[in-house]
């Protein structure tokens, strides 16, 4: 049991993160101060939220390239709602963000489930459609800080037990989805549908419908993140979070989620996101140009996927007696 824990992917990743922090602290000890680490976590929270959703989608053998566009569209819509009706309670804004995000995710899911269009094609298409829709809605204009209501902007920054609400959102999502993934029928169905779709059908799991729910969850999380994003940066426009979908996929891959489906955990997605978040925040303080970030995350993806492949390499059938005892 202990041996399995130590050799698990999550443990390896924790080791890599600790090593990374140690390296950074030799150059800049202030980085590992709790307050700064809390900042890094807060800064990485949007990535964590999206990575959890993406992880679930990838588990079911799909991919969601539309998350960043969903985030931007939902962010624009809630900003415009806020401008139009500044008095709306924040609970309504949150409900609109999560609901709209989930609807956009359902649209992806329906196309994958009912029309059986490959997910990469669906989300490639909806990604551009969502972005274009933002332009149509906003007429290409920005929603700026001064147009947003103070309450709208304040929520993600409000401190609660010395952590901002944004961080708490990520923490709640991690806990909630850890429970969903390990302790609910739907959660286990995600693993089954991606790990062995054929067998899942025999076990009474509707694979298409399971994929639909994965897209819905991914969309809902993207919607929530959309609100958090525009309120935190106090601006909404067409191109926010452009290309962020790749960071999200990268976080999943680094977190040990198998693109072939069926393998991945919430903890993995969290750690993968943190790994990227730490690098992003550390580069400026250790005096490396932030322009290095893209190449580093690319390199990390390749190394991570190569390591995962080594670990999951199919071993031949064990027929010989001596081989049976050797393993």
């Amino acid at each position: 049991m202990l041996k399995r824990l130590i050799t698990s992917r999550e443990a390896l990743l924790i080791g890599a993160i600790v090593l990374l922090l140690v390296l950074i602290s030799t150059r800049f000890p202030g980085f590992v101060r709790p307050a700064n680490l809390a900042n890094v976590f807060n800064d990485t929270s949007p990535l964590i939220l999206l990575a959890i959703g993406q992880m679930i989608v990838i588990l079911t053998k799909c991919i969601d390239l539309s998350v960043a566009a969903n985030l931007a569209l939902t962010g624009m819509v809630v900003s415009m709602v806020n401008v139009a009706a500044p008095g709306l309670p924040m609970a309504v804004i949150l409900a609109v963000a999560i609901g709209l995000g989930a609807l956009l995710g359902m649209f992806n899911g329906i196309l994958v489930w009912k029309l059986q269009i490959p997910p990469i094609v669906v989300t490639l298409g909806t990604m551009t459609i969502f972005r274009g829709t933002i332009f149509l809605l906003s007429d290409g204009k920005w929603v700026n800080s001064h147009e947003m209501s103070p309450a709208f902007k304040a929520l993600p920054r409000t401190d609660f037990l010395s952590l901002p609400v944004l961080s708490w959102m990520a923490i709640i999502a991690v806990i909630l989805f850890t429970i969903v993934m390990t302790r609910t029928t739907l959660g286990r169905a995600f693993y089954a549908a991606g790990g062995n779709p054929h067998a899942a059908t025999y076990a009474g799991i509707n694979v298409g419908k399971t994929q639909f729910w994965a897209f819905t969850i991914s969309g809902a999380l993207a919607g929530l993140t959309g609100y958090l994003w525009v309120s935190r940066f106090a601006v909404a426009y067409v191109d926010i979070a452009g290309g962020f979908e790749l960071d999200v996929v990268a976080a999943c891959v680094i977190g040990g989620v198998s693109i072939m489906g069926g393998i991945g955990t919430v903890a993995g997605a969290l750690l993968g996101a943190l790994f990227l978040g730490i690098i992003k925040n550390a580069l400026p303080v250790v005096d490396i140009s932030p322009f290095w970030q893209l190449a580093i995350s690319g390199g990390a993806i390749i190394i991570a996927v190569a390591l995962n492949a080594q670990a999951n390499r199919e071993k031949g059938r064990i027929i010989l007696k001596r081989a049976e005892h050797a393993t």
Binding site: Q293, G298, V305
Partner: peptide, 11 residues
């Protein structure tokens, strides 16, 4: 792989 090299090359 190519999502990785996509970041790497442009990076």
């Amino acid at each position: 792989v190519t999502i990785g090299t996509m970041s790497l090359f442009r990076g």
